[in-house]
């Protein structure tokens, strides 16, 4: 850049250095406040993303990122020939699709029912109870599930035996993993997600209901013609967001529910990566695990971006 220092009295002032100096002098207090945030952004958010380069290496913990050998796309080639990868991907996608199909409509139905409730006491107390499970840890939720489903002492098997059936070891059966995962997902999220719809319903103009009544609408008609259209924007937004997060499975829950006997359905990309890194005997294959995760992250990223664009266009809301 060519410097013109001969006339500093005219605006805009010269050189970049000078402008920076003035900016810092004027705003140094704000920069002090921002510093911890920037440091944590660089160290804890950007640094790990940069660390993903080990997907293109044969990473060794002893030699570090700079000392490890580069292998190009070898880890990705291995992935596409790995037969187990197909199981992982299909497990991940099936869980994700079930999460949308089975879990998504429930908070909407719940909000609609709650809206029809006359008694304030019932309405408020049921709503309060409904979103408590959202704040309980995965470790507690899975532990409770394991206690209730215990083959010898759990209440479910006690009931099954009472009616003459044979006890089932639910937590170890691959065919039971998905229903149980979805059950926990519903239990933990429906009340919390319903809050958005309930707020949406509250915001509907009461005159619309009166108009519908004049038109002869009964309770059912008002729900179809006023309430549901009134929250359609929220519904579309929430649907787009959940499609965008299709790869975001509840990693903690899956890792806690995973065991070798139900692996056929419970092993997903994240649990596989976790096992590679933290539970394998001998030297963990960090590079391969990262390569698998990188493919997942890229797909998830594209989905979120598309979802955000769609939400912006169809519902005039953005997630970010």
């Amino acid at each position: 850049m060519k410097r013109k220092n001969n006339d500093t009295r005219l605006l805009p002032p010269a050189g970049l250095g000078e402008r920076l100096r003035r900016d810092v002098l004027l705003n140094w207090r704000l920069y002090v406040l921002l510093l911890p945030g920037v440091v944590s952004l660089v160290l804890f958010k950007l640094f790990p993303v940069a660390g993903m380069v080990i997907a293109f290496q044969d990473f060794s913990a002893f030699r570090g990122i700079t000392g490890s050998t580069w292998v190009g796309l070898e880890n990705f080639q291995r992935m596409f020939t790995d037969k187990y990868m197909l199981t992982l991907i299909s497990n991940t996608v099936i869980i994700a699709i079930l999460s949308i199909v089975c879990v998504f409509p429930i908070p909407i139905i719940f909000a609609l029912l709650l809206n029809e409730e006359r008694s304030r006491v019932v309405k408020n107390s049921v709503q309060s109870l409904s979103f408590l499970p959202y704040f309980i840890s995965s470790a507690v939720m899975v532990s409770i599930l394991a206690t209730m489903l215990n083959p010898s002492t759990g209440i479910v098997n006690v009931i099954i035996r009472h009616f003459g059936g044979d006890a089932v070891n639910f937590m170890a059966r691959p065919e039971w993993f998905r229903p149980l995962y979805i059950l926990l997902q519903i239990w933990q999220t429906f009340g919390y997600n319903a809050i958005i719809y309930i707020a949406g319903i509250t915001a509907i103009n009461p005159e619309l209901y009166e108009a519908a009544e004049v038109d002869g609408c009964q309770r059912w008609g008002k729900m179809i013609h006023v309430t549901i259209p009134g929250i359609s924007t929220s519904i579309i937004t929430m649907l787009i967001i959940s499609i965008g997060q299709i790869f975001t499975v509840q990693t903690e829950r899956i890792i806690l529910m995973y065991n070798p006997s139900n692996a056929a359905t419970s092993d997903v990309i994240q649990s596989y990566v976790y096992r590679i890194a933290f539970q394998s005997l001998g030297f963990p294959d960090y590079s391969y695990g990262t390569a698998v995760n990188l493919v997942k992250s890229v797909l998830a990223f594209i989905l979120v971006i598309i979802a955000n664009k769609l939400a912006d266009r169809f519902a005039e809301t953005r997630v970010f």
Partner: peptide, 28 residues
């Protein structure tokens, strides 16, 4: 007054949407 605020916010959002994954986080 903070000119770099959009850049910083975008980096926060970007690293939130683009998951680095467990292993790079562990190594970092």
């Amino acid at each position: 007054r903070i000119k770099c605020r959009y850049l910083i916010m975008s980096l926060f959002v970007l690293t939130w949407v683009f998951d680095a994954g467990m292993i790079p986080r562990y190594i970092a």
